[in-house]
Amino acid sequence: MNVPRHWRETPERYRMEAAKCRKCGKISFPARLICPECKNKVFDKINLSGKGKLLTYTIIRTAPEGFVDIAPYAVGIVEMKEGVRVMGQITDCDLLSLKTGDKLISRFRRINEEGKTGLIMYAYKFVPDVGI
């Protein structure tokens, strides 16, 4: 049962809520209790802009359970405008023309579901930032 586990991450998954260290300004996504940079423990909540560029990626062809029906699909590491890096799927694109350095923007999408009658898990994915 994934309900509490997914629900707990709602701020991060639904609107990319991150934590900005009040002392050194380092942004952590997801939020942490200890700043990895300066060990400070006080943070402010911020929402990431969703804009970033692709650092590296792969195209998953042998997919894990729950993702078989959407394979092949791209997963990459995106460096957000705010400097923090996020892993996510890249969709609405021609898989074979993806390039590192591509400008991407986040979209709210379905990631997975607990079968046809269970919980639908929503979160961010990335799409090419082409102004639509």
């Binding site: 959407i70 969709t91 609405d92 979209r107 709210f108 999408r109 379905r110 990631i111 929503y122």
Partner: peptide
């Protein structure tokens, strides 16, 4: 709709 799109995701967009 793409397989990962539904009324909720389109609404948010």
């Amino acid at each position: 709709p793409a397989p990962d799109e539904d009324t909720a995701t389109l609404s948010v967009g």
